[in-house]
């Protein structure tokens, strides 16, 4: 355990030494909330949103954004680089299994997403009066389930790409459509019916819907939870099957 803590701290340190990733993961989602919150119309209740406000929705979307960035953009690139450069093999010759390094990398990403989420929620609450999730336990569980789902997808990407560069490209390529369905550009609530149905079955779309449910005081919809669990199981299984250490 002592070694795992040390590994995680090292991974965290390395993460923070990449100023671009650190900014986009930890600061950018909050910046997005602040910018949108500065638009007066977004702070007014809308009939089309059942009396909700656009800014309320975007706090949930910003949380999904942090998860997508750590899991789809960062983790695959880092892990593929570790494999490409023989770091995982290097660990395989020591008493510490490369599995621990992989675990430390995932925990690091999760911790960064937690910090970013805390920041988004705090700024949303303080600056724009966005209520904290009234179904808090549901929020935490949904957050962890979503994180597990997207990290499993990230692991599969890391397993399949030949290099860190390729991991980065594939991650970026997937990031935009997945975030589209999470409502980054058009929130789910105002999507056309057909698009909304598709979104409900995408990992980030399901995550956004489930998080939004808990933020408005409900338990997440069964369909979203099922979809997220499905991603965890299927992609977790594939990641275990396909991941190569060298």
């Amino acid at each position: 355990m002592r070694v795992f803590t040390k590994l995680t701290l090292t991974e965290l340190r390395l993460f923070l030494r990449e100023p671009m990733s650190a900014f986009f993961v930890i600061i950018f989602p909050t910046v997005l909330v602040v910018i949108l919150g500065c638009i007066p119309a977004f702070r007014e209740p809308q009939d089309s949103l059942d009396g909700g406000r656009v800014i309320d929705l975007y706090v949930g979307i910003a949380v999904v954004l942090t998860l997508a960035m750590v899991a789809i953009q960062i983790a695959p690139a880092v892990l593929a680089t570790y494999r490409e450069r023989g770091v995982l093999r290097r660990f395989a010759t020591t008493p510490v299994s490369p599995l621990k390094l992989l675990g430390a990398q995932l925990v690091t990403n999760l911790l960064c997403a937690v910090v970013a989420t805390g920041l988004v929620l705090a700024v949303g609450r303080i600056a724009f009066d966005v209520p904290l999730a009234s179904q808090f336990a549901g929020f935490v569980l949904t957050f962890l389930l979503s994180a597990a789902g997207v990290l499993a997808i990230g692991l599969v990407i890391a397993a399949l790409v030949p290099s860190g560069k390729a991991g980065n490209s594939v991650g970026t390529l997937l990031f935009f459509p997945l975030m589209f369905f999470a409502g980054l550009w058009t929130p789910r609530e105002v999507m056309p019916e057909a698009l909304r149905t598709v979104a409900d079955f995408t990992p980030l779309g399901a995550a956004e819907r489930a998080l939004n449910d808990t933020m408005t005081g409900h338990w997440p919809a069964a369909i979203s939870v099922t979809v997220l669990l499905g991603y965890v199981v299927v992609f977790g299984f594939l990641a275990v099957r396909w991941f190569r250490w060298s």
Partner: peptide, 10 residues
């Protein structure tokens, strides 16, 4: 190992 590297920022 031959050709085994470490993370850049370590």
């Amino acid at each position: 190992l031959q050709e085994s590297q470490l993370p850049d920022k370590l």
